[in-house]
Amino acid sequence: MFKAIVSAATLSSTLDSVSVLVEECKIHLDEDGLQIRAVDPANVGMVDLSLSADAFESYEADGGLIGIDLSRLEDIAGMAETGQLVQLELDEETRKLQIQIDGLEYTLALIDPDSIRQEPDIPDLDLPAEVVLEGRDINRSVTAADMVSDHITLGVDDGEEYFYVDAEGDTDDVHLELTEEDLIDLQTGPAHSLFSLDYLKDMNKAIPTDAEVTLELGEEFPIKLHYGFAEGDGQVTYMLAPRIQSE
């Protein structure tokens, strides 16, 4: 069984963080909250999300698994006004999700979870550098880099102790340095990797500007981006594989 009431804003944030990578996902409805894990079809980007029962107005579940079409559910959640509550209830008989928003009832057909791509195993990454910064700084970096290139280099200068962003275009370049004073926290280590902006732009869209985001980086290694939402009751970790740098 599954029956929950949640604010429209929390529901939307949850769905948006996953839909940047995939169109369908499985949701584990555990007793203490829900879990979503998904990898994009090309195996380049991954999301691992949990939303604790505390983020809900009320929450009852007993370990079920459902498959949903994300954009459908996002559209429905979008019908709610800010601050409105959304009630979700799983009809076990019909395998449909009953959604109520202030008198509006919507019955959403679920997707057979077996038909959705298998959930990935989270790669075990031990990354030497850690940068903690505000969502707005990621937004600034990505937006600037996108003006000149399709890729972005993220790195940490081990000696000088700063985090940097590089993007090289055909004619124009972008460079940004953030020292310890600009950052919330910095643990230096050898880090320098190139990433596709296509993916980072999408992930950036889901990251709230006032969120505290932890980046973990290495040398030509995947990046991990971690942030909390719903007042800390929700946690998202993105992982993104680097581009291979020739030479």
């Binding site: 195996n43 980007g45 991954m46 990935p120 594989a241 581009r243 020739s246």
Partner: peptide, 9 residues
């Protein structure tokens, strides 16, 4: 000649 790595293979 791929330039994009994957997370899992």
């Amino acid at each position: 000649n791929r330039v994009q790595a994957t997370l899992v293979s």
